[in-house]
């Protein structure tokens, strides 16, 4: 009953909007990892929730169990008049390509992959740039000059994270890099125990800063690093607060902003199609510095990272993008 009343209230609110702004019925389709993965999908969810709080416009979401359901849900949202429809994950590339043709009036947003269509906005992040910065900081901070990386699954996206990281770490003076992937099934994104084991093995080999790009698996990586008196680096969301004073920094990937902007732009009638490549310059990725990790970062380190950031934005330093030729100059 309360829900119905609330729904009616939301409806009244939408109906009362000035005619200038578009009426939107936002929808969100997650990756098969699921809504509450403490990482990528959850960031998207947070963006949609924030939009709901700010504007009172409710959204609908769906968590597909398999690839068939993902396409089904995207099509269903479109056919039920939802607009814009946001699809999180590269797994929906072909689905968005197909459905966007069937519903040319509907606006689609695809995150982490590219579809070239007049009604699709493709949002990709330059994870390599953000990872370069946290890698640089890791290289500077490391006493053993050995740094670690724990990925989720061995897929191109995660290699892109790892490649940016080792380039940065090398620039920061690290001499040895350990890279491990957690697994080969979807469970790899949600296996903190295995993540912890991999972190432990890297620590035993001498690593003292470890970067996790592995969804909920990363929580185990960070925990193990902290338990062994080493430093962890968080990913996607700002995870510095998880272990205050023990997390060196986090590589922030603003999926929430991408979702929020998609809805806000559609609402304001300013939706644009095409590719949005969000790097340091656009504020799509960044390193996190707050009270939790402030004491770990000396002024010199901060200056070095900020300088690298400025150089990347200015174009004087380029980070090799793994996706450009599917190789990494630093192993």
């Amino acid at each position: 009953m309360i829900r119905k009343l609330f729904g009616a209230a939301v409806f009244a609110l939408i109906a009362a909007q000035p005619a200038l702004a578009q009426d939107i019925k936002p929808a969100l389709v997650y990756g098969t990892g699921g809504k509450f993965d403490k990482s990528f999908n959850e960031a998207g969810y947070n963006g949609a929730e924030k939009y709901k709080t700010d504007t009172g416009i409710a959204y609908r979401d769906f968590e597909p169990q398999n690839d068939t359901q993902g396409e089904q849900a995207i099509r269903k949202f479109a056919s039920e008049g939802f607009n814009p429809v946001v699809a999180l994950s590269f797994a929906w590339t072909d689905a968005v390509a197909k459905v966007s043709k069937e519903f040319p009036e509907t606006k689609f947003v695809l995150v982490d992959s590219v579809v070239d269509a007049p009604n699709v906005r493709s949002v990709v992040f330059k994870e390599d740039e953000g990872s370069y910065l946290v890698g640089l900081l890791a290289g500077l901070k490391s006493e053993t000059k050995k740094v670690g990386f724990v990925g989720g699954m061995d897929i191109p996206l995660i290699r892109k994270f790892g490649c940016g990281y080792v380039q940065g770490a090398k620039a920061g003076g690290a001499t040895q890099f350990f890279q491990n992937m957690t697994g080969t099934t979807g469970a790899a994104w949600n296996d903190p125990v295995r993540g912890g084991e991999l972190a432990k093995s890297q620590i035993d080999q001498g690593a003292d800063v470890i970067y996790a790009a592995a969804g909920a698996t990363g929580l185990g990586v960070l925990q193990t690093a902290v338990d062994n008196g080493k430093l962890g680096i968080g990913v996607d969301s700002n995870q510095n607060y998880l272990h205050p004073g023990k997390i060196l920094t986090s590589m922030v990937k603003k999926v929430d902003v991408a979702v929020y902007n998609a809805y806000a732009d559609a609402k304001a009638g300013q939706f644009t199609a095409g590719v949005q490549a969000l790097g340091l310059k656009e504020g799509g990725v960044d390193w996190a510095l707050d009270d939790n990790n402030g004491p770990l970062v000396t002024p010199e380190m901060k200056a070095a990272v900020e300088k690298a950031k400025a150089d990347i934005i200015a174009g004087t330093v380029t980070v090799h993008d793994y996706m450009s030729d599917e190789t990494c100059p630093v192993e």
Binding site: F90, A91, T93, D94, D112, S113, V114, V124, M153, D154, I155, P156, L157, G183, T184, T185, M323, E326
Partner: peptide, 24 residues
């Protein structure tokens, strides 16, 4: 099952994937 998953990830990421595509 796990060996199959490992084999398929290897093949799809390194051998059968379209160059430049994010999706294995």
């Amino acid at each position: 099952n796990f060996i199959a998953a490992s084999l398929m990830v290897y093949l799809l990421v390194n051998v059968m994937k379209q160059p430049g595509s994010m999706s294995p």
